[in-house]
Design a protein around this nucleic acid. Structure first.
Length: 478
RNA sequence: GUCCCCAUCGUCCAGAGGCCCAGGACACGGCCCUUUCAAGGCUGAAACACGGGUUCGAAUCCCGUUGGGGACGCCA
């Protein structure tokens, strides 16, 4: 049977890295097995779901390069792929459960439920069927007459013993039946609860494997009970652990960026993020480099390789990967990718030149957002040198080097490429009677105002001759 | 409180009883390369949470302790 997996986010905000990894693993699984990857929006909570969040999630998924075979925007035979549009099926199945004695109306108010919960926690006791389960027709009528809208509650069968299932990543998991209390299926406003909607939709959409976060573990027994009551074959379940912050707590804003939109805005590359996320929860990447392309990821993905221990998010490693992919990026693509960041920083220049300049700057950058800063000295006069830099410029070798540069600038054609620049610097060094580091450092300092940067032979051809002359002379006259 | 899950270098991952005085990647230190910084190459330091078993032999299996995470919603 073909693998059908799904990613089912609830649109209450942008896509979190943890969820992005869940989506990625499902996508990888489907692609590896030649199955389908389905996207379903779980927007039954009207309070929290927003159209903006749906758009943001779709956007983030697309940015990561995770395309879905069925779902919003692309449709499919099992749609609609948005729970708020499938209310009829939940109602219908709810009726069936009610008819067959597997569900009942619950009239407790939120306050009453709160109190029941409090008592349960306090007593540390086992879950018991909710009182309303044994309401007589008369009592129900009386409650009905007061006008309260009931919710539909599942009557957990008294199976005794443990409920066990084989988790794809953790092996057998068993929980005492006594731990499972009657849970709500449909709210009094007619919208379904998560466990119910997920089961109805997973079955309705022919899902074969459910790969989700570890918070799904405790929901699985309840869902299994629903499959049983409905007479359906359940999918296979696999639960991956969470991604935690450096303090072993929940990964939050205080640790750094957490949503895909954040990473994008900060100047991370999708290939770096995807590569990193794969490293975070998958074992089996052999020895040597951990830089992986999509094909390599697809090839190495397997449910068996999914790791069950929680992982701590390491921004440092992500940055290493990002810097790597940035360096590898071909000039034309880099220009396109960097454009929004350049625009935001007010950098404007001729395309051909900009492409070459970025190709140099990328070697010094970690994030796309670092790029404008690396281009800075092309457009702005360097700050006056201070400290050690000033000493280098004012020293004997420094003055000689700059004098040689000025002379050569006046006597030779300005270099247009690295080869010409090499020859140009050779002449300047001969002129100055200074070479090597003693020559290049003052030149770099005078021209760019920085001690570090790309090779000068590649840099010089991108500069304006008049800027070079002026900046060099300024230090000679000082 | 009850239940569930997890436990190898600072971090991510190898390790499915002898191949391990534990291997790779990031970060960190050193050296090389080099006009600088990076990149690259070589190299160093760095871990089997603890306690009991099982076994000729345990990072690997079992039990317990400790620590971390999760669930117990008319949230998903």
């Amino acid at each position: 049977m073909a693998v059908r997996v799904r990613f089912a986010p609830s649109p209450s905000g942008d896509l979190h890295v943890g969820n992005a990894r869940t989506a990625l693993f499902n996508w990888l699984f489907a692609r590896k097995e030649g199955g389908q990857f389905i996207l379903r929006i779980e927007d039954t909570d009207r309070q929290r779901s927003t159209p903006e969040a749906i758009a943001a999630i779709l956007d983030s998924l697309a940015w990561l390069g995770l395309d879905w075979d069925e779902g919003p925007g692309v449709g499919g035979p099992k749609g609609p792929y948005q729970q708020s549009l499938r209310l009829d099926s939940y109602r219908e199945l709810g009726d069936r459960l009610l008819r067959e004695g597997n569900a009942y109306w619950c009239y407790s108010s939120p306050e009453e439920l709160e109190e029941e919960r409090r008592q349960l926690l306090e007593s540390g006791g086992r879950k018991r069927p909710h009182a309303d389960r044994s309401l007589t027709a008369e009592q129900r009528g009386a409650r009905e007459a007061t006008g309260v809208k009931p919710s539909l509650r599942f009557a957990v069968p008294d199976l005794g013993g443990d409920l066990a299932f084989e988790d794809l990543v953790r092996g057998e998991i068993r929980v005492p039946m006594a731990e499972i209390g009657d849970f709500n299926l449909i709210k009094s406003d007619g919208t379904p609860m998560y466990n119910f909607a997920a089961v109805v939709d997973d079955h309705g959409m022919g899902i074969t494997h459910v790969l989700r976060g570890e918070d799904g573990i405790s929901n699985t027994p309840r869902q299994l009970l629903l499959y049983r009551a409905l007479g359906w074959e359940p999918p296979r379940f696999g639960h991956m652990s969470f991604i935690l912050g450096p303090d072993h707590g929940k990964l939050s804003k205080s640790h750094g960026d957490t949503s895909i939109g954040d990473f994008k805005a900060r100047g991370y590359l999708p290939e770096a993020l995807v590569n990193y996320l794969v490293l975070l929860g998958l074992g089996g990447h052999g020895e040597g480099s951990e830089v992986l392309d999509r094909e390599r990821m697809k090839g190495m993905f397997s449910v068996e390789a999914m790791v069950k221990n929680p992982a701590i998010f390491d921004y440092g490693k992500l940055q290493f990967l990002n810097a790597h992919y940035l360096r590898e990026m071909p000039p034309a693509r880099l220009l396109e990718t960097a454009r929004p960041f350049l625009r935001a920083a007010g950098v404007e220049a001729e395309e051909g030149w900009l492409g070459r300049a970025l190709d140099l700057a990328k070697g010094q950058a970690v994030l796309l957002a670092d790029l404008p800063r690396e281009l800075d000295f092309f457009f702005r006069e360097p700050e006056p040198a201070a400290g050690e830099a000033a000493a280098v410029l004012a020293g004997e070798a420094g003055r000689k080097a700059l004098a040689g540069l000025v002379k050569t600038l006046a006597s030779s054609p300005f270099p247009r490429d690295a080869d010409e620049a090499k020859a140009f610097f050779k002449r300047a060094q001969a002129e100055a009677q200074v070479k090597g580091k003693d020559f290049f450092m003052p030149v770099r300092l005078a021209l760019t105002g920085r001690e570090h940067g790309p090779e000068l032979v590649r840099l010089l051809p991108l500069m304006k001759p008049e800027d070079c002359a002026r900046r060099a002379r300024k230090h000679l006259e000082a």
